[in-house]
């Protein structure tokens, strides 16, 4: 759709505003994988409730906005269970090993002109692009 970029820009602005609140308010970097991952591997015990309420906000806001969209929102999620499981494990493992994902390294890292954030973003976009070439255009799996 032609309007997609405007919604992208507006939504991106809200994401950046969320990151600004977390940074200027709580002095923390808004990274989805770090906030969630710290609850899983026990490294986030000291600020457990701060992490939990953040995740509640991320989960609940779309539930409140969804009724405004007539016909709902299609995520076009693949139905291939093998692909879903492999992708989920890779995303969980990779973001924790790299210590960041699209929000932490991408949004918060690049805006800080952090070389690590920029390098991470270049590598995950390249890896994602090559994965699409291999699994969509060559193997036809996704």
């Amino acid at each position: 759709m032609e309007m997609d970029w405007i919604w992208g820009l507006a939504g991106g602005g809200l994401i950046g505003l969320g990151g600004a609140v977390f940074l200027l308010g709580n002095g923390r970097i808004m990274g989805a994988s770090g906030i969630l991952g710290g609850l899983i591997d026990g490294t986030g015990k000291s600020n457990l409730s701060e992490r939990l309420v953040f995740l509640v906000g991320v989960l609940v806001m779309p539930m409140l906005l969804l009724p405004l969209y007539e016909g709902g929102v299609d995520t076009h999620m693949t139905t291939n269970i093998g692909v879903i499981i492999a992708a989920g494990i890779l995303v969980g493992l990779g973001t924790r090993i790299a210590n960041g994902c699209t929000s932490g390294h991408g949004v918060c890292g690049i805006s800080r002109l952090s070389l690590r954030g920029i390098v991470a973003t270049v590598f995950y976009i390249l890896a994602g692009g090559l994965t699409i070439v291999l699994f969509r255009h060559i193997l036809g799996v996704i």
Binding site: A32, G94, R116
Partner: peptide, 29 residues
């Protein structure tokens, strides 16, 4: 760690089109 992790993450991101933030945000639908 930064390079290996980012490559693994990118592969999963490409396969399913989801990263951690949107995976949480879309969980209800």
């Amino acid at each position: 760690r930064l390079i290996t992790g980012s490559v693994l993450f990118g592969m999963g991101w490409g396969l399913a089109g989801l990263c951690p933030g949107p995976a949480i945000a879309s969980l209800s639908y």
